[in-house]
């Protein structure tokens, strides 16, 4: 029952990107990152190393954070992809986006989209993450500017908002005094 291998040429796949069905064709060696940025014009997802070493290109694949530079575009066929462009609902920011802006958790901003998505997946499955949970979820996203402190704080603030708490960033946090 072995089928013949598909001939070289363009791959044609359909998938869901940020809630919209999308059809796209591209050479089969292209990574999901390249398909998103080049073929779908979604440049919010950044490239930092293209070898799976920095986390900058993190997107959600079926709700799970993955490195879009390591996932071949063809492997995303039939699946749901979410990028930073799909986080806000119209003009209404996702609580994580709001918290990152409020607390200054984005400096140069280049790693921010990837971190936001990794954090969104975390809060989706764990509304009350501990410090250890945040570490495990975000240790794969390198940031060279912030020192990560405000990223921790922003994730915790957003988590509180999403739980419906009327939270403000603490004057003294467990990560250090302000």
């Amino acid at each position: 029952m072995a089928r013949r291998a598909e001939p070289p040429g363009h791959a044609h796949i359909s998938l869901e990107v940020n809630g919209e069905p999308v059809e796209v064709s591209f050479p089969p060696h292209k990574t999901l990152l390249e398909v998103l940025r080049e073929d779908l014009g979604l440049t919010g997802t950044k490239h930092g190393c293209e070898l799976g070493e920095c986390g900058t290109c993190t997107v959600l694949l079926d709700g799970q954070p993955v490195l879009s530079c390591l996932v071949l575009g063809v492997a995303a066929a039939g699946r749901k992809v979410k990028t930073v462009e799909g986080m806000a609902r119209g003009p209404e920011l996702h609580p994580l986006q709001r918290a990152f802006a409020d607390l200054g958790a984005a400096q140069c901003g280049y790693c921010t989209p990837g971190i936001l998505l990794a954090a969104e997946a975390l809060l989706e499955r764990n509304p009350r993450p501990t410090r250890q949970d945040i570490k495990e979820a975000l240790a794969g996203n390198l940031c060279r500017c912030t020192g990560y402190i405000k990223i921790y704080e922003a994730v915790e603030l957003a988590a509180a908002w999403m739980r419906g708490e009327d939270a403000a960033p603490p004057e003294e946090s467990i990560y250090g005094r302000r």
């Binding site: 072995a2 291998a5 071949l72």
Partner: peptide, 28 residues
Amino acid sequence: DSLGFHRASSFEEAAGLLHSGAAVLAGG
């Protein structure tokens, strides 16, 4: 550029395609 891609439906089929020059792709 001339890289081919095949989605295997069974391990039997996959093994049958592993001639020299083929590589198994899982997570990548």
